[in-house]
Computed example of a mutant assay.
Amino acid sequence: MGRRVALAVHPGSGHGTAARIAGTVAERLRAEVDHLELISAATPQALRDSVTACRSAGLDALVVVGGDGAAHQAVQCCAGTEVALGLVPSGTGNDFARALGVPGRPGEAVTALLSALRGGSDRTVDLGRVDGDDPGSSRWFGTVLCTGFDAAVNARANRLPWPSGPRRYDAALLRELLSLRPRPVVVDTDAGSVRVSATLVAVGNTPFYGGGVPICPSARPDDGVFDVTVVGRVSRTRLARILPRLRTGQHVRHPAVHTLRATRVRIEGAAGTEGTAEWPVFADGDPLGALPVNATCVPAALRVLACPQLP
């Protein structure tokens, strides 16, 4: 049986960029594979149902045209299976694709995908798994899980109609500074437990969130561990001084910033405190509820295309 590939397009990604390039991507893939299945990605459940049906018929790869939200949903379909994931970044952030070394230009990304398909080359990368209380409620993430100030920024950025791309994140960040309120949390890991009055906690499978912000600059998706960044209690003024360092990764040198590496992380409000349970939790830019949260790094949980060498 020849190479079977499914193509899922999220037309709203990148303010319509995904929809504009979908035909070209499909044409180029169709010329190279034995069977191309077009999948409707109108809802996360529709995507999962379609991929499940394709997988039962024999599926080698799922190619997704979209941004981090589209990649996040595709990861839920491919994690723990033999179906390789290919990304054509066309969103506003594209942080997962960036961390995997996928070319930022859609045309170049497709060329890299075709090269991987021709050579039958793929590789495995780690994923984070968020475990809920109910069986079957686990969620996967490829980039960063965050809570606190950065999760609040993420939530606000999702609500902003303008500006686009990384500037939207920057605008949301400045607005959230006005309501900054550090809160006591317990960060419990297999590398030790820390109780701290935190401004934010970020658990990185890869370095980036917010359109290229290396919040966990040393994180790699092939080392079997998370990199955890904890920003302790800081004033608005001190945080404003840290923020310019985020784009360069130099924030980890600030005395208020603590880092550690772990395979298992639980974040919860410290006993006897109020308000922390209201802290939102985001992963891959998608909301996952509020604290407490449990995350586990699962080595080699995902096969990916067009990543001969991670950056």
Rank of each mutant, 00 (worst) to 15 (best):
M1Y: 13
M1C: 12
V5W: 00
V5P: 08
H10W: 15
P11Q: 08
G14D: 11
A26G: 10
E32D: 10
L36M: 13
S40C: 11
A41E: 09
P44H: 13
Q45D: 15
R48T: 15
S50E: 14
A53S: 15
C54M: 09
A61G: 10
V64E: 12
G66I: 09
A70H: 11
H72Q: 12
Q73R: 14
Q76M: 11
Q76F: 09
C77W: 07
C77N: 13
A79Q: 12
G80F: 01
V88C: 10
G91Y: 02
A97C: 09
R98A: 06
G104I: 00
V110M: 07
T111N: 09
A112Q: 05
L117N: 02
L117D: 03
R118M: 00
G120P: 10
V130M: 14
P135L: 02
P135V: 06
G136A: 05
S137H: 07
W140V: 05
F141E: 02
V144L: 07
L145H: 02
L145G: 06
A152G: 12
N154L: 02
N158M: 11
P163T: 00
S164L: 05
P166W: 00
P166F: 01
R167F: 01
Y169D: 09
A171E: 06
L174I: 05
L177S: 06
L180G: 06
L180F: 01
R181H: 13
R181V: 01
P182Y: 01
V186M: 12
D188A: 15
D188M: 10
A191T: 15
G192A: 13
V194Y: 04
R195W: 00
G204D: 09
N205D: 07
T206Q: 05
F226H: 09
R233F: 00
T237K: 07
R238C: 00
L239H: 03
L243G: 05
L243F: 05
R247K: 14
Q250D: 06
A256M: 05
T259D: 10
E268F: 08
T273W: 08
E274C: 11
A290C: 14
L291Y: 11
P292D: 13
A300W: 01
A301W: 06
L302P: 15
C307I: 09
P308M: 00
